[in-house]
Design a protein around this nucleic acid. Structure first.
Lengths: 243, 243
DNA sequence: CGGCATATGCTTACGGCGTCAGGTAGTCTA
DNA sequence: TAGACTACCTGACGCCGTAAGCATATGCCG
């Protein structure tokens, strides 16, 4: 067993006194739940969910894996914490008073958040407990507030929330699970095209015809298309004039 | 129907004597990709994604983990195979000729499939490659076919497909990730209600008021609500009369 | 100042994971 | 009958999450 290595970090601090190790430990900022969650989110964004590992987070923070347990209960708690951090990033759009515009802006803000951290979709899909932290509930509260101004009944507000929420979630899921160009990977375009070329045209005539079209679509435009459908339907339901 | 017969067994060998191990090895039906995928799907449905393990599947099939590799490349190939098996279960609704009814029926069939195997959502969310097997593409082809009959332009068909697909995916995701009663877990209802009771009412007035409503909602009815919105919007776009 | 409680981080270890490398025993064909 | 092939097994490696216990630093008491 080699002797204890005095980490090189201690050269960066003022030479107070003899004990290098103690000094280095003093000057590195202490571990916190906050710091852990931020590191976890970063690793997840950059390298995917399977890279988020206790040992890896420890390495990222200059600490052993077991030290993390002083600040979080579980790995599961870390994953839930990531959701918290992400939802806390939600940027509440400025309210215009125009109901449709506000709904649209809210939907876009939500989508933008998910697109910025695509892997959270998988996190949602695997999470076992419903949301309960204020960070996760605040955007929800706000969405209810906005939707409630459209002349809908209470139960319609709930249903509209679920309809929009579902649509946003699913759009992003399809977008990141089945990527098309316009956002990121160019090679999936080629993959799509090639697939369309290889398909037996008698069994898959529509696919052969439409897959290339699909590959060319802009995910953002498509998102707006579905949003239009939902809002048009809702407008009818609320007996509003087409503005 | 219990039509399962072990056809290979009697063909192969005359009844050799004695050796118990050889005999037992002979009458267990041989491992196949098919059998592996079915076992994987069953384990996943009953115990969740994290229970799907090479060793576990081996145990399930009376075989060591490494034997699975004679029939599948990877664990990842197994997970993709599960998607294949599930999508092969898609029940194509009978076509009525009524476009709206057909679209609705298709959406319901899709939803029913996901609800029957809730964990596949997580699989979709994690899968890295777009669909390419015929089993996964056939329902897609069919959806394009149905949507194409509504008087939409080609690009609108693609967009409608993505809108409906997104909505279905997301609805089911929200339904299984944030369960409410009516389908399965009763205790989540209580959880919701309790949460509503504990929330600071000045910060979350809408949540406090609407969460109980939400807990009472029927997921299926809510699904239909969103479906109505989308179809109403689409009907307008296609310049069809409200039938 | 000494002494202890508490908080923080480290070490070790256990069982389970995916999978590589190599072994073996039955079966098929020349 | 020899050799190849198939289908399965054994053992090992390096990961994983985390339980248990040890070491050290800090804060509070007299």
């Amino acid at each position: 067993m080699p002797e204890h290595v005095e980490h090189l970090e201690n050269v960066s601090l003022p030479p107070e006194q003899g004990d290098g190790e103690a000094a280095s430990r003093r000057h590195r900022e202490p571990l916190t739940r906050e710091r852990i969650l931020r590191a976890a989110l970063q690793v997840m964004d950059q390298e995917g969910l399977e890279a988020v590992t206790m040992r890896r987070l420890g390495r990222e923070l200059g600490v052993e894996a077991m030290s993390l347990y002083n600040h979080v209960k579980d790995k599961e708690a870390i994953l839930e914490g990531i959701l918290e951090v992400v939802m806390a990033e939600f940027e509440f759009p400025e309210e215009t008073g125009d109901w449709e515009a506000d709904v649209r802006a809210g939907a876009r803000a939500w989508r933008r958040l998910m697109i910025a951290h695509p892997t959270v979709i998988a996190l949602f899909a695997e999470s076992k407990h419903p949301a309960s932290s204020p960070e996760r509930l605040r955007p929800m509260e706000w969405a209810f507030e906005i939707l409630g101004r459209g002349g809908l009944s209470e139960v319609e507000v709930v249903r509209a929330f679920r309809a929009f929420g579902g649509y946003i979630m699913g759009s992003v899921l399809n977008e990141v699970a089945n990527p098309v160009p316009g956002m990121g990977d160019r090679d999936h375009h080629a993959e799509h095209m090639q697939l369309a070329g290889e398909l037996p045209p008698t069994e898959f005539p529509n696919l052969v015809r439409l897959l290339p079209l699909m590959a060319e679509c802009d995910a953002e435009v498509d998102f707006e298309f579905g949003l239009d459908l939902l809002i048009a339907g809702l407008r009818a339901k609320a007996n509003r004039p087409a503005r």
